[in-house]
Simulated scan of single mutants.
Amino acid sequence: MYIHQLKDWPSFTWDAEAIHVRLGEVRHRQGRILGLMSSAGFKMQENTVLDTLTLDVTKSSEIEGVKLNTDQVRSSIARRLGIEIAGAVPTDRNVDGVVEMMLDATQSYTNDLTADRLYDWHAALFPTGRSGMHKIAVAAWRTPEAGPMQVVSGAMGKEKVHFEAPAAEKLPVEMDMFLKWFNAEPTTDAVLKAAIAHLWFVTIHPFDDGNGRITRAITDMQFARADETAQRFYSMSAQILKEKATYYEMLEQTQKGDLDITRWLSWFFDCLFNAMDHTEETLAAVLNRTQFWEKNREVSLNSRQQYMISKLLDEFHGKLTSTKWAKMTKSSPDTALRDIQDLIEKGILEKETGGGRNTAYSLIA
Rank of each mutant, 00 (worst) to 15 (best):
K7C: 02
A16M: 12
H20Q: 15
H20F: 13
V21K: 13
E25D: 09
V26R: 05
R29Y: 13
S38A: 13
K43F: 03
M44V: 13
N47D: 09
V49D: 15
D56A: 12
D56G: 02
S61E: 09
E62H: 07
G65V: 03
K67F: 11
L68I: 06
I77N: 04
E84P: 00
V89P: 06
P90D: 15
R93I: 14
N94F: 15
N94A: 11
V95Y: 09
D96S: 07
V98L: 06
M101N: 04
S108H: 15
L113I: 15
T114C: 08
D116R: 10
R117Q: 03
L118E: 06
L118K: 04
L118W: 07
F126N: 01
F126L: 01
P127Q: 10
A146L: 10
S153A: 09
A155F: 09
K158F: 14
E159M: 11
K160M: 08
K160F: 08
D176N: 14
D176W: 01
M177Q: 13
L179I: 12
N183P: 01
E185W: 00
P186N: 06
T188H: 07
L192F: 11
I204Q: 04
D208I: 01
G210L: 08
G210C: 09
I214V: 14
M221W: 06
S235R: 08
S235L: 11
M236K: 05
S237T: 08
A238K: 10
Q239I: 04
Q239K: 15
T254F: 04
D258N: 14
D260E: 13
S266D: 15
S266N: 12
F273P: 00
N274L: 10
T279K: 04
E280F: 12
T282M: 11
L283D: 03
A284V: 10
A284M: 12
V286S: 04
N288G: 04
T290I: 03
F292W: 10
W293T: 01
N296C: 02
R297F: 05
K311W: 01
L313V: 00
F316C: 07
K324P: 02
W325D: 02
K330L: 10
P333Y: 05
A336V: 03
L337P: 00
R338E: 11
E345G: 00
K346C: 02
L349D: 03
K351S: 13
G355A: 10
R357N: 14
